[in-house]
Design a protein around this nucleic acid. Structure first.
Lengths: 133, 133
DNA sequence: TGAAATTGGACTAATATAGTCGTATTTATA
DNA sequence: TATAAATACGACTATATTAGTCCAATTTCA
């Protein structure tokens, strides 16, 4: 089953909120309450979004996160990469070697799958957070 | 990480072989030997491909599988559906209800994700087994 | 100084995927 | 007609991934 992870889901839900209220600061707690999403998990997700430059944060009381980019410049692909390490249709498609795949050497679909994977990344590169609003 | 399952991978490897030698009969054993793929697992995969009409089979000695459709009429989407039950970006996208998702009611991205999912299915509907050859 | 916030690491639980095993049935052929 | 080779099918185990939790440190405002 091809699917996105809950983490990415939570990231997109949060990013949509940020996109709707740009420049506004939200805490992890506020967002987890509003959407009934596990607080600790969401916190980690927001931290990752910060690390890759999509959000900025301020520490301490009255702290929180705010959007650090235009919603129409944040791609779903970026989010998937930040949270889950990107799209890799098959294991052998990203830096991984034969160690991870018993059929690496006589795999007949390596190259065509690589092409499809590129197109798929392109697909998610065209999808923006602003498309969710 | 967005990825396809090993089962789908094995299905595509097998289908590519069938597509290259149409009308030729291959046994599960032959294919698993040729590509070094687990025999029992591949067998199940081929059985599923048969059930959905992509392959036909003959029992007993000298039996095996052969292609039952044109390779350019078999979509990757069909294969994913047959083996893994299709693409469902989020759990709530296919017949599943709120039971499966704690945030079902106040999920803000349900609808836009549904749209993206449709486009994604479209994407894999355009990819044919013949594209792998 | 205390409350509320981010940060980060370690851990557990739950689920999904991958792979294995055993057995029944069918069929060509020696 | 016995045997070997094949599909068919269900139950099971092992492994990996994902989801979620817990704990402690640090920062900052009031």
């Amino acid at each position: 089953m091809i699917k996105i992870s809950k983490k990415v889901e939570y990231a997109l839900i949060a990013l949509k909120l940020f996109a709707e209220k740009p420049n506004e600061v939200f805490t992890s707690k506020q967002i987890s309450d509003k959407y009934n999403v596990p607080y600790e998990l969401l916190s980690k997700v927001l931290q990752k979004l910060k690390k890759c430059g999509l959000l900025s944060s301020s520490l301490g009381m009255n702290g929180g996160y705010k959007l650090d980019k235009d919603p129409d410049q944040i791609t779903i692909q970026q989010v998937i990469s930040a949270i889950d390490g990107g799209i890799s249709l098959t294991e052998c498609q990203q830096g991984k070697t034969k160690d991870n795949c018993i059929i690496f050497d006589n795999c007949s679909i390596k190259d065509p799958m690589h092409k499809i994977q590129n197109e798929l990344q392109n697909f998610f590169n065209k999808k923006k957070v602003s498309d969710l609003v």
